[in-house]
């Protein structure tokens, strides 16, 4: 069981009569890149908030990095990284100040901050920009920096909520290289995305429709199962049956 990073069993979240997440069951292996796709309003964000310890489920069970989502939210938070669809660095702080801040709130020591900060700048090739305000960096750099900062405390799992929104294809490709590198280092990546070409990059993909997981397998198997050539078509076939309107 050691190599399971996230495990959900009949995980459900209701808001009054509305079932946002409807008994979803899945598991994510350590080091896997896991794609979490679905139309707007399908329940992805709610599910992700539960797994991040921000929201308590109504029923079902789930463990993240071995910790229970009901009782051990604090432990979960220490072991995950998170990058949201909104750009999440402070534009009026320099690159290094952002690194110091995020590393600081995750409790890294001064020496760790210095070493990992230097290593991060080196890997992204922006050592010369350490004292540049983040606001003046190009968007692609910002996204890559945001990802690197999200994993600076070496979490077991990193949650990426539509991380490549508004980024050009070349940068998106480079961004995925960073995710692969993190995965090679054993970090599990839990990625939500609207781009079906990105779903192809994932090890396994789950497709949410109306709060349920309607499909869950490797991209190759899913394509075989639906007898189509691309994840795009898989998604389209599933999403067409949705009753909920996107909000």
């Amino acid at each position: 069981m050691d190599n399971i990073a996230i495990k959900a069993d009949k995980l459900t979240k209701r808001f009054g009569d509305f079932v946002a997440v409807d008994a979803i069951t899945f598991d994510v292996k350590q080091g896997e890149i896991f794609g979490f796709v679905g139309a707007n309003g399908a329940g992805k964000t709610t599910a992700m908030r539960i797994l991040c310890g921000l929201s308590v489920p109504t029923s079902g069970t789930a463990t993240v990095a071995g910790f229970d989502v009901y009782k051990q939210a604090e432990e979960i938070k220490k072991n995950i990284g998170y990058m949201s669809q909104k750009f999440s660095l402070y534009e009026d702080l320099t690159v290094m100040e952002n690194i110091t801040f995020y590393a600081g709130i995750y409790g890294l020591s001064d020496k760790e901050i210095k070493d990992r900060g230097a290593e991060l700048l080196d890997r992204l090739g922006i050592t010369a920009e350490a004292k540049t305000f983040v606001g003046s960096l190009p968007l692609g750099w910002k996204q890559k920096l945001a990802f690197s900062v999200a994993v600076i405390h070496r979490p077991k799992i990193v949650f990426l909520d539509e991380p490549t929104g508004g980024v050009d294809p070349v940068t998106r490709r480079q961004f995925w290289d960073l995710i692969y590198e993190a995965s090679d280092r054993g970090i599990t990546a839990f990625v939500t995305t609207h781009y079906m070409d990105e779903a192809e990059y994932c090890g396994r993909v789950s497709v949410m429709v109306d709060g349920r997981i309607d499909a869950f397998d490797t991209p190759a198997n899913l394509k075989k199962q639906f007898s189509v050539n691309s994840m795009n078509e898989v998604f389209y076939q599933l999403a067409r049956g949705a009753k909920r309107k996107a909000d």
Binding site: S84, Y102, F159
Partner: peptide, 10 residues
């Protein structure tokens, strides 16, 4: 959107 990050942090 940084508030989310702060809430997800420990």
């Amino acid at each position: 959107g940084t508030m989310e990050i702060l809430l997800v942090s420990p």
